[in-house]
Design a protein around this nucleic acid. Structure first.
Length: 315
RNA sequence: GGUGGGGUGGCCGAGUGGCUAAUGGCAGCAGACUGUAAAUCUGCCGGGUUAACGCCCUACGAAGGUUCGAAUCCUUCCCCCACCA
């Protein structure tokens, strides 16, 4: 499976669009924010023009108030991939949400059935606890996960209590087999990323982001999951009169930089290096390199489907 | 010109004689990550040296001084802010 990934504003979509037009691809968006309807400018969704140039899947598939998940996305992505193929196109997964890629390619463990009501009540309770307190619980219930963040702790504790099983055990026991072999094209312009982030932000601020946020503030409740996309909180503060344009710009810049940094850390350590091809989109010959990657990855895909291989073709 | 307040590590900001290379926060760097992931967390964070403990140097506007010892006390100077003229 072809995957174009990389930090935000790196130029993933330019590369993906180029490949899509050249090789008749359909784009599968692996982006946890572009799924939300109405959150367009600030999430840098592909333009209508781009969307008419190649089929896009995975965009505008959820209400802003909906609590989405990596598993839900991966399941939907299965359908999109089939849909792309049925339409005679090569699916090309594009996105920067590492966990979504993992959910699709490594498969998350099968979650035991949980009583929704009890789970909701428990999560509400755990939400009131201090982080240290959650750590103490996790140390008893699922020590292997006790070093993680709040979100993970709540989940580990919840499953341990409600299902009587540790997430860390389920990882091993309930693992789902991977369905595809990914080939990653990691797009990253290196030091040029910072100026690109700034330029994109200025463009967003001049092309409707403030209005978009003002509109969303009327219709989408303030605690909707869609809001926690970097920048939206800052722009919302500005629109509410709690901040200035300059301060907002500065804050969003920082949030975006930090996000890009986290993405780089993820891709650097979580992706198997042997499956990754690096692409610097500021290289003049990036199209050649991208095309070569596409060919090699296609060949690898064919081999994988004809003979459930044991080895990996190196990139 | 007078009076009062203030100048602290990249920034903000505690600290009023030794426990202070100096609480916090931000920014930065590195890392973790299997169902909210643009999320949620962890470590480092003056310089040099060390595997580490440590050791050395530089540092609280500037210059002097008091003291065994000063970011902290005294003197002068520079700059900022407020109020009075």
């Amino acid at each position: 499976m072809h995957v174009v990934c990389g930090p935000t504003a790196a130029g993933k979509s330019e590369v993906a669009m180029w490949l899509a037009e050249r090789a008749a691809c359909a784009l599968i968006s692996a982006d946890s924010r572009q799924i939300y309807r109405g959150f367009d400018v600030g999430t840098a969704k592909p333009s209508p023009a781009d969307r008419s140039r190649a089929p896009h899947y995975g965009i505008d598939v959820a209400e802003p108030t909906e609590r989405y998940s990596a598993a839900a996305w991966a399941e939907a992505a299965d359908g999109w991939i089939s849909g792309a193929r049925a339409g005679g196109r090569t699916p090309l997964v594009v996105g920067g949400t590492g966990l979504y890629l993992r959910a699709l390619f490594d498969g998350l463990f099968a979650e035991p059935a949980l009583d929704a009501v009890r789970r909701g009540a428990l999560e509400e309770l755990l939400g009131t606890l201090e982080l240290d307190e959650l750590r103490r619980w996790a140390n008893i219930l699922d020590p292997a996960r006790a070093h993680l963040g709040r979100t993970q702790l709540v989940r580990a504790i919840g499953i341990a209590l409600l299902a009587g099983e540790r997430v860390s055990d389920l990882h091993r026991r309930n693992a789902r087999p991977p369905r595809w072999r990914p080939r990653y094209l990691l797009v990253d312009p290196g030091p040029a990323l910072q100026p690109r982030i700034a330029a994109r932000l200025d463009h967003m601020l001049d092309h409707g982001w403030p209005d978009e946020v003002r509109r969303l503030m009327q219709t989408v409740s303030a605690d909707a999951p869609a809001w926690n996309a970097s920048g939206y909180g800052a722009v919302r503060d500005w629109m509410a009169g709690r901040s200035t344009r300059d301060a907002t710009r500065e804050r969003v810049l920082i949030e975006t930089r930090q996000y890009a940094k986290r993405q780089r850390t993820w891709f650097r350590h979580q992706l198997p290096e042997r499956l990754v091809t690096h692409l610097d989109p500021t290289d003049v010959d990036w199209p050649t390199r991208a095309a070569r990657w596409f060919e090699v990855a296609s060949t690898a895909n064919e081999q994988a489907t004809t003979a459930p291989a044991t080895g990996e073709a190196s990139s």
